[in-house]
């Protein structure tokens, strides 16, 4: 078990090296000039700036310096904000994206289980039809359209109420997070609902449910003790990958709801061709994903004895 995870972690480190290298050589293949500004600059100033960012050295040594810095966890200085370090930028903006992502996962998980169970219980009756219709809507409309329409509706609701029911954007309190997190979690919630529904239906036709019915257990007890518990397992197994996807996929809600997360910052950095921020963010996210996957495996290993034996 321990050697298995030691191996996984070693492999993870190699993966991060791969990501870092891909990003580095990718960025240096980008046409364009990260130092260019509105005003043309003199050769002297340009040379000074190039020296500051180490752009005057040959690519090979730039690469080695870069790898060395990453190994020490140093992502360098931003090109657009010359007095800020990329580490500070990640430290300030990533927790926001992560908080939003976790809340979205909570919404998606709770909602998925709840709606999935409901639809299975009321199979082919109106709650099933209504919820499945919403689910289909949730997975078939582009997220930026959903985000824009929900913000617009919220403005309308606030105007009609004459007071702020919920903030329509920005960051700071739990209330700011609710709507963006819902929007962010929507497609995952829809996916989980479908999964939960089919899982529930499968469980209903198993022998132990029939036995439980036969021995006269009340329906509520069958539902909570046997049906729900067993149906939830497959849902839990897909939550892991979903976490990573959601935390890095917050670009749209962060832009629409003016949330200062790392996703929005990344998009801005791309438009500014801020080399160090782009590379730092990508490597950081890559590393984050790699270790999330390892962590999720570890947790499964602890929870589910079958997985432990297999490995």
């Amino acid at each position: 078990m321990l050697t298995y995870f030691a191996k996984r972690i070693a492999l993870g480190l190699v993966t991060i090296w791969f990501i870092a290298s891909a990003t580095f050589f990718g960025m240096h293949a980008v046409p364009g000039d990260p130092l260019a500004g509105d005003k043309a600059m003199t050769a002297q100033i340009r040379a000074n700036l190039e020296a500051k960012y180490g752009l005057d050295k040959p690519l090979g040594s730039q690469y080695l310096i870069y790898l060395g810095n990453i190994a020490r966890g140093d992502f360098g200085i931003s090109y657009t904000q010359e007095n800020r370090r990329v580490n500070d930028i990640i430290r300030e903006h990533f927790p926001i994206s992560a908080t939003l992502g976790i809340l979205a996962i909570v919404f998606a998980g709770l909602g998925g289980v709840l709606w999935g169970a409901l639809t299975a219980l009321y199979r082919n009756r109106w709650p099933d039809v209504v919820i499945m219709f919403l689910v289909i809507l949730g997975i078939s409309v582009p997220s930026f359209v959903v985000a824009a329409i929900s913000q617009w509706s919220l403005v309308g609701a606030n105007l009609a109420a004459g007071t702020t029911i919920l903030p329509i954007g920005g960051w700071g309190t739990v209330w700011h997070m609710l709507v963006p997190a819902l929007v962010l979690g929507l497609s995952t919630m829809a996916y989980l609902t479908r999964l939960m529904r089919s899982s529930m239906l499968e469980v209903v036709s198993t022998d132990y449910i029939r036995t439980a019915k036969a021995k006269g257990l009340p329906a509520t007890q069958i539902f909570s003790r046997h049906q729900l518990r067993n149906a939830i397992l497959p849902v839990v197994t897909v939550l892991g990958p979903a976490i990573a996807g959601i935390t890095t996929g917050g670009f749209v809600v962060e832009i629409v709801f003016a949330i200062p997360g790392l996703g929005r910052y990344f998009v801005q950095a791309i438009q500014q061709l801020d080399y160090t921020v782009i590379m730092g963010t990508t490597v950081f996210y890559g590393a984050f994903l790699v270790f999330m996957v390892i962590l999720v495996d570890l947790v499964y290993g602890l929870i589910d004895p079958r997985v432990r034996v297999e490995k």
Partner: peptide, 15 residues
């Protein structure tokens, strides 16, 4: 697989 998809999608578009 480990490359963050959307980030690299944007990166490749620029490259």
């Amino acid at each position: 697989v480990a490359l963050p998809f959307l980030l690299f999608m944007i990166l490749f578009k620029v490259i």
